[in-house]
Amino acid sequence: MQSNIGPTNQQGQSQKLMVFVLSMALFGLGDLVTELVPDIGIGSIEFGVPYFGFIGLILVMLFNPLYAALGAAVGEVVFGDLLMGDFGGLGEIEGVLTLFIGLYIAGLLVKNLNSKFSIAIAGMVGIAVEQVLGGLADCIKVWVGVEDLEAIQGLPESIVILELVECSMEWVIAGVIVGIIPSIILIPKLHGKIEPLLGVKPRQGAYSQVAAGYLLVVSIAVFVGATLFGVIGEAIEIGAWEPDFIDQFGGWFVWVGMAIAAVVLIITLLLRPKSKQDFEHPKAG
């Protein structure tokens, strides 16, 4: 009796479970480590590591992004927060969602694991989405939580500014310093080596849902942009502080935006020359 059993549904399921469990355990551990390392705080802006972005990024890029991102998000809550008894309530739930979306997008976006450029762009966009969504959620919370927010002189602006500064800080730290930089170093080392340990085939090229990924990015970007403008716009319109705010701090906002853009640009330029080669020989290495 010769029976050549192809990959069954059961098999696929268990590999997804493996990716989920792996991602959860590792991201959770990373979260614990960052939580135990004391942050240097200046006000609410912390010069600490919010989380190890690279762990999540590596896993979503190497494996099925959906399950890896889900695992990372669950791991973050379970290890870092729940078991430490440090559950931040509502903030946690929205944190799970934003982290999941950010990482999932990063995983879908990456096209070529041999290209540092591709990894860097996907990673930076993913973490940026996470941070923007998170900041937005915080603003909304304050907006709901403070009665007549718009009527209070100085408060809305300071909240928005603080969020902006905090998010950009976190983006630079979690997304770049302990995000894409370690990812770029570690992904080529792990690619092709870790997959057989789980009994999965190494990922080749883009994930099939890459189109969906772009769609998702675009839609979220539109959504985020719209809401952000909505909140700010509303605040600006209703608040009595519009003119001098723009005068005083309009430039400020521009600078923050430009700084982020500059960082992206520099990293892109730094990585570009090498990656061109990679693009020409996508199967090399």
Partner: peptide, 21 residues
């Protein structure tokens, strides 16, 4: 084997007279 690990499987394994496949 053969339910979880896929591959080329030939022959029979009987446990208590039941064929594992």
């Amino acid at each position: 084997i053969p339910h979880y690990y896929v591959g080329d499987y030939d022959g029979t394994v009987g446990i208590n007279g039941k064929n594992t496949i």
